[in-house]
Amino acid sequence: MTLSRQRGFVTPEPNEDWRAIAARVLPAEPTDAAIEKLRSWNLHLLARNPPGEFTGSDVLFVEPPLEGTGGALPGLDGVPGDD
């Protein structure tokens, strides 16, 4: 059974911060830009307590949401990414 592709994620290693994770998962990007991308893909980690700090069990996405996963959001007919 082949699993369908889903949004990629990692979990933090002990003592990793945004900078360390950015270097691990987006090594080709300048660090600050990589951190900005990671934060924009992981707002669930920012909109909580303690904001922006990791716990060991967190899920960190390493890419934006995938095409076709947005759902038919009310009032957003025709928005790219909705299905």
Binding site: T11, P12, E13, P14, N49, P50, T55, G56, S57, D58, V59
Partner: peptide, 21 residues
């Protein structure tokens, strides 16, 4: 993976890394 204590700190289980679980 979601619960907080009375001080809005994550409950202990949330600090477990994958190896522990």
């Amino acid at each position: 993976y979601v619960d907080f204590d009375e001080n809005m700190r994550p409950v202990p289980s949330r600090y477990a890394h994958a190896e522990e679980l």
